[in-house]
Design a protein around this nucleic acid. Structure first.
Lengths: 223, 223
DNA sequence: GCATGATACGAGCTTTTACTCAGGTTCAGT
DNA sequence: ACTGAACCTGAGTAAAAGCTCGTATCATGC
């Protein structure tokens, strides 16, 4: 199950008619559902093809190998998360810092509420996880966070902004990520967002956050 | 690679002579090294046997199946982490709260510094990870943390102690866990411990932590 | 209608891998 | 030295899973 690299990953045919585009979508959707339900262990190409209602041969007409199918899944997932990232562009400075932090956290929460099971599997998958998508995704997010921190330098008491960005990002990601499967209700209700916001603001500014901003009720509607 | 459950997991012979005890140790050590290096994907019984310098038959004389070998690895790892957990018994109250928090974090750091790669793989392994070892391990730790929080109720500003315990534990575990592979130097120097301590104390007490206690230099010696 | 390329099928080939078993080697007690 | 138990060996088995390829069907332009 480990190494299989005989012929180079030949680029496969790209769908040109509507029929085949639908086929590819069905394959990807089936793959997502299988991954989300059975984890990487139950993720077999034969199984995916069957669940998609197509034959194995069809699957391999569009994906040169199993890994590329997983890759496409990851690519789409990353895209879905990244759009909307501009929420945390360093707004001129009119918003209170706590509000900016909260907005960022809500963005992460929203991303995890779309398809928690799939998100979990994808970020825990050894072959490509961590080293490919989580890294590049982290880079873009890191840039944003650092920019915001720099813009608010005066309000932040932590000396090392780089370390601060690292610690806060990992903490938020992990807490939200785990809560998506362990404390879904707290995640949806916004209680967890409150706590994490409090934690970050307290850490960064040195003052307790009063939580004077209203929680975003729209979160309850998704997923 | 998924299901294989034909005959019930027959209990295997237990080593009685020194020779066989050494064999078993060699197998376990080889398994640990292979897991740490190649992840669960490269973890095959044949490979383990070869690396341990024994035949595949010998391996199966002491472990009824692959899963049991992994289980033994996890059992030992958990034991190694759990001893020393009494560091965070709710000390009467003479220590400043920040010092207690720091001691707890240092304990987590120490655990991750023993064999970071193996620790990482073990906690990310789907079959048993998260649901088995991390869960039961988490239970014991959770109990300790909650006890400490309850004992220090007066100093804590967060209303929901249960949620507070959840958030802090996940945050610490994740930050330290990731830092073990991404920011090892900060982990060893204690800089990361400083930051995390600051974060937790700020969050829990509502006041910025001055970091007036001396960092534990002993961490540099391990691993 | 028909030709041609796109799309789909699925039996089966090949590799990988968990695991067995028949038989050989070493050790401990006498 | 002898015997029986403990220990070890590694070729072999079987099942799972990735992937191929020859064949069949559909869609579109002429």
């Amino acid at each position: 199950m480990a190494k299989r690299r005989k012929s180079p990953p030949i680029p496969r045919k790209r769908p040109e008619q509507d029929r085949s585009r639908a086929t590819v979508e069905a394959i990807i959707e089936a793959a997502a559902r299988i991954l989300a339900k059975g984890g990487y262990g139950g993720f077999t190409t034969n199984h995916v093809a069957e669940k998609a209602g197509v034959s194995i041969g069809t699957l391999y007409q569009y994906f040169p190998n199993k890994e590329s199918l997983l890759g496409e899944l990851i690519r789409r997932h990353k895209l879905a998360i990244e759009d909307g990232i501009e929420v945390l562009t360093p707004q001129a400075g009119d918003l209170p810092f706590a509000a900016v932090v909260r907005a960022a956290i809500e963005h992460v929460v929203r991303a995890h509420l779309v398809d928690p099971a799939l998100h979990r599997v994808l970020s825990e998958t050894p072959p490509l996880g961590k080293l490919d998508w989580e890294a590049t995704f982290g880079e873009r997010l890191t840039a944003h966070v650092k920019a915001v921190f720099a813009a608010r330098r005066a309000e932040i008491v932590v000396p090392d902004l780089d370390l601060a960005a690292y610690v806060t990002m990992r903490a938020v990601e992990a807490v939200v990520h785990n809560a998506a499967t362990e404390r879904l209700s707290d995640l949806k209700s916004g209680a967890l967002t409150d706590e994490v916001t409090r934690m970050l603001v307290g850490y960064l500014t040195g003052k307790a956050a009063g939580l004077q901003m209203k929680p975003n009720a729209a979160l309850l509607t998704s997923s």
